[in-house]
Simulated scan of single mutants.
Amino acid sequence: MRISQHEALQQFITYIQLEKNYSALTSEAYQQDLQEFFSFLKQEQVTTLEEVEYVHARLFVTQLYNEEKARATISRKISSIRSFFRFLNREFQLNDASFQSLYHPKKESRLPRFFYEEELKMLFEANEGETPKEKRELAILELLYATGIRVSELTSIQLKDVDFSLSILRVMGKGRKERYVPFGQFAHEALQLYVTDARPILMKKQQHDSLFVNMRGEPLTARGVRYILNEMVKKTELTTTIYPHMIRHTFATHLLNQGADLRTVQELLGHASLSSTQVYTHVTKEHLRNTYMNAHPRA
């Protein structure tokens, strides 16, 4: 049975959304990866999916290396192609054996970037304020650091997901997996101030239950969060570029440095595998030195 690239892609996206419970962001990433692969096939004058062979996939990967794409990006695109052709094999009996032979590049052994406690203190202090906008931004920063949630999880929070009496946040993670994450006093105060004083003003005439909103009262997007965080850094003497996952890295690093066990951090981060959490087992130089000085008999 012959099927067009467009129709196959649409059926695949429907499959990963409905049956695999992939988020909208993940589905969009798969779609972009596969559309990029289709564009490459067009350049190679391959017009049908039945014509695609292992050599085409290898040439595509080679092109990605030539474009100096990050290894993680290349690995994700390989996964997208493999999953797509596995789906075609299941649904349309298209041979996918060649694509299972594609190997992933070795991961770069870079440690996650994070803030030291002094840097984070500067960030908090520089962004205190009394306007609705400032109260919203501080609440976002406090909640990200207090919980380590992903930016996609932050923007999907509804008012009903926040339990102020227990200081617990209901989070819908990857694969529509639900978890509950506690937050501390600083986040509690900043969040309550935002909800009672700032959000009603920012909402204007909008009617929805999204916790965080933009200056027009509409639900805040992931792009909006990235912009807000970068504007917050500009108010400090820090020279780093901030991104939402950097706060997540900081959350995990600080917990582990203070003695939290790996399984607890895994649960808080919503990682399906412990190996995903182990990347955070690096420690700061100060923590390493202090532990050594306190523990070694001849230090």
Results as ranks from 00 to 15, higher is better:
Leu169Gly: 09
Ser276Cys: 10
Tyr194Asp: 02
Thr26Ile: 05
Ala146Val: 00
Val46Lys: 13
Val213Ala: 07
Leu144Val: 00
Ile168His: 05
Tyr54His: 13
Glu218Asn: 11
Arg58Asp: 01
Gly270Pro: 04
Lys77Gln: 14
Leu193Met: 04
Pro244Thr: 00
Phe12Trp: 09
Ile149Asp: 08
Leu143Ser: 06
Gln258Ser: 12
Ile149Thr: 06
Glu44Ile: 01
Ala97Tyr: 07
Ile140Gln: 04
Arg223Asp: 05
Lys177Gly: 00
Ala260Ile: 09
Glu68Gln: 15
Glu108Met: 11
Gln100Asn: 10
Leu41Ser: 11
His104Arg: 11
Pro200Gln: 10
Leu268Val: 01
Thr241Cys: 08
Glu44Pro: 02
Tyr227Leu: 09
Ala139Gly: 08
Gly270Tyr: 06
Pro105Arg: 14
Ala97Phe: 10
Tyr280Arg: 04
Phe115Lys: 01
Ser276Gln: 12
His188Met: 09
Arg226Met: 02
Arg2Glu: 15
Ile149Ser: 04
Leu169Asp: 14
Gln45Pro: 00
Ser167Arg: 15
Arg110Ser: 08
Ile13Asp: 05
Phe38Asp: 10
Val46Tyr: 14
Glu91Ser: 09
Thr221Pro: 10
Glu108Arg: 14
Leu211His: 08
Ile78Val: 13
Glu68Ser: 15
Ile140Cys: 02
Leu256Val: 03
Leu166Thr: 15
Arg263Lys: 03
Ser210Ala: 15
His282Pro: 06
Leu111Thr: 09
Tyr243Lys: 01
Thr221Arg: 06
Glu128Lys: 06
Asn230Gln: 15
Ile81Cys: 11
Arg199Ala: 05
Gly129Arg: 03
Tyr180Asn: 04
Gly184Lys: 04
His271Gln: 04
Met232Asp: 13
Thr277Lys: 09
Gly173Ser: 06
Leu34Asn: 10
Gln10Glu: 15
Tyr103Cys: 07
Glu128Tyr: 11
Phe84Tyr: 12
Leu220Glu: 03
Leu262Phe: 03
Thr48Tyr: 12
Val265Thr: 05
Thr131Phe: 08
Arg82Thr: 03
Ile74Asn: 07
Glu125Pro: 00
Leu138Pro: 08
Lys106His: 13
Leu18Gly: 01
Glu36Arg: 11
Tyr116Arg: 03
Asn89Ile: 00
Lys160Trp: 09
Ser80Trp: 13
Ile13Asn: 06
Phe115Pro: 04
Ala8Gly: 11
Glu50Ala: 11
